[in-house]
Design a protein around this nucleic acid. Structure first.
Length: 192
DNA sequence: GTACCGCTTTTAT
DNA sequence: ATAAAAGCGGTAC
């Protein structure tokens, strides 16, 4: 916990998101914590109620790497709140394999802000979640139910899956915006 | 270079 | 229901 970190409360629950920013003010890391136990250690912390920013805002405020992990993160941002996509949906979109998507998901440096909890198994099973020390699947299910995705017996019904074409459209919109920011950055660097 | 890993999926018992 | 192989970019050696 650094002095410039923020704590966001998720959906009025006891779950919080610790948000770390780099020297430029870009978010580069988030950690999920339990607020009640966290406050026992750290006093006088300002808690902000979290409302989800739209994907383009996240692209602007977060540090998304220019590599395959970054692509997977952008694809996750393309899944709207209240929906899920399967590992194989993302794999098809990005020409990867489902297991590779899972591997990158496990490397997601900013859980919740980059909604890797919305990626689940093709058969509706909730899939893994490592952004929590244990019972990661429980936290994943909780995050999903907070955004009105019904989880019954660790399974999500088919009607919560985002339409692949919509996923694709969202992804390209987000990717183009991301790319325009990158080019902007490079051109401003050259002109200095 | 090689070997192993992981938030899966598919196929075969 | 459970087991195993395929799959592939990263990472570590």
């Amino acid at each position: 916990m650094k002095n410039n970190d923020q704590l966001w409360r998720l959906g009025g629950s006891d779950l919080g998101l610790l948000v770390h920013r780099d020297f430029k003010g870009l978010v580069d890391k988030t950690i999920i914590i339990r607020i009640s136990s966290f406050l026992r250690k750290f006093k006088n912390i300002n808690i902000i109620d979290y409302t989800e920013p739209d994907p383009l805002t996240v692209v602007r405020m977060a540090k998304i790497p220019y590599d395959n992990l970054g692509l997977v993160m952008l694809a996750m941002l393309a899944i709207p709140r209240g929906f899920v996509a399967s590992y194989s949906d993302l794999a098809e979109l990005l020409n990867m394999t489902p297991r590779l998507i899972g591997l990158f998901a496990s490397k997601n440096p900013m859980p919740v802000l980059i909604p890797c909890h919305r990626v689940i198994n093709k058969d509706g099973a909730i899939g893994g979640y490592s952004a929590w020390h244990r019972d990661g699947r429980g936290i994943k299910a909780l995050l999903l139910s907070m955004e009105d995705v019904k989880v019954n017996g660790m399974k999500v019904s088919k009607d919560h899956f985002v339409d692949p074409n919509e996923l694709k459209d969202n992804f390209y919109r987000i990717y183009n915006y991301y790319h325009s920011l990158i080019s902007e950055y490079h051109s401003s660097e050259q002109s200095e």
